[in-house]
């Protein structure tokens, strides 16, 4: 039972971290609970569907379907996270100001919430489909299924608790800094996802260059450990990154930086709200 709990928790932890960060990043934005719930529900439904069609997805594209699917899911999430950060660069200060003034929900932010709901949905979809398959496997094998199944379900619960821990941990950051902290977290999250995404393209055989490993830090921290796994999700820690992964990682950070600068210096869409600060 403990084994099943740990396996499921390990799968859930990544989605859990992402949801925790997204919740902190949208602190004070009206309707965010609803959007994040949509994301989670859509992700769970999607996970069941993906698990059901796992065989078909695997066989697609000459056996590279699963890799291409994962690469696309991660790629879309990266774009959504970039979009969110660019959007926050433009509107974040208004939101923070409003939050300080009225200490309540602000009406701004529905567009960015869509992007983040998609990110949450995709994270749940990707990790969730593996949990569904694993739990299905336990049920299908029949032997001592119930204890294992209970372990698996408990794993999801512990994962949810972990999400709450991430969220409340981030909430401890003063309002003044929270958006810059979450923007950084989202930038690193996106860079790590981009590095994972290109590795899936490489595994699919779509990309066949730059596969050389640059360094190996497995002696320091393995990705299999819980801390390694956390860092893997948070900042994209990889014990043996390839040239391709490194380029994707740094490229995403650079693109994010440029986008945010660009967004900040663009005149606002709506000039009616606030005159010069």
């Amino acid at each position: 039972m403990l084994g099943a709990l740990i396996i499921v928790f390990r799968e859930v932890i990544e989605a859990g971290l992402i949801i925790g960060i997204v919740m902190a990043a949208t602190r004070g934005v009206a309707g965010r609970g609803r959007w994040i719930t949509y994301g989670v529900v859509a992700g769970v439904l999607g996970a069941v569907i993906v698990a059901f069609f796992a065989g078909a997805i695997s066989q697609a594209f000459e056996g590279s379907g699963q890799e291409l699917f994962n690469a696309s899911v991660l790629g879309i999430a990266v774009v959504m996270l970039m979009w969110h950060n660019a959007w926050m660069a433009r509107h974040g200060r208004e939101i923070a100001d409003e939050m300080r003034q009225i200490g309540a929900d602000v009406s701004e932010g529905a567009r960015s919430l869509t992007a983040l709901a998609v990110v949450v949905g995709l994270a749940v979809l990707r990790e969730g489909s593996e949990v569904v398959l694993f739990l299905y496997g336990i049920l299908a094998s029949g032997t001592s299924g119930m204890a294992l199944f209970t372990g698996g379900v408990l794993g999801v619960v512990v994962g949810a608790a972990f999400t709450a821990l991430t969220y409340f941990g981030l909430l401890a950051i003063p309002t003044r800094y929270i958006f810059s902290v979450t923007s950084w977290l989202i930038a690193l999250l996106a860079a790590g996802m981009a590095a994972q995404s290109v590795q899936f393209l490489y595994n699919a055989g779509t990309v066949n260059v730059l596969g050389t490993t640059v360094w190996n830090t497995s002696w320091l921290l393995t990705e299999n450990s819980i801390f390694g796994k956390l860092l893997h999700t948070l900042i994209g820690y990889t014990e043996q990154p390839t040239q391709l992964q490194l380029i994707a990682y740094l490229g995403t950070l650079a693109a994010m930086y440029l986008l945010v600068r660009f967004a900040r210096h663009q005149p606002h869409d709506r000039e009616l709200a606030a005159p010069a600060e």
């Binding site: 695997s58 497995s218 299999n224 043996q240």
Partner: peptide
């Protein structure tokens, strides 16, 4: 992790 492979079968 060493071979950077992760595939559900």
């Amino acid at each position: 992790k060493q071979m950077k492979v992760e595939k559900v079968i």
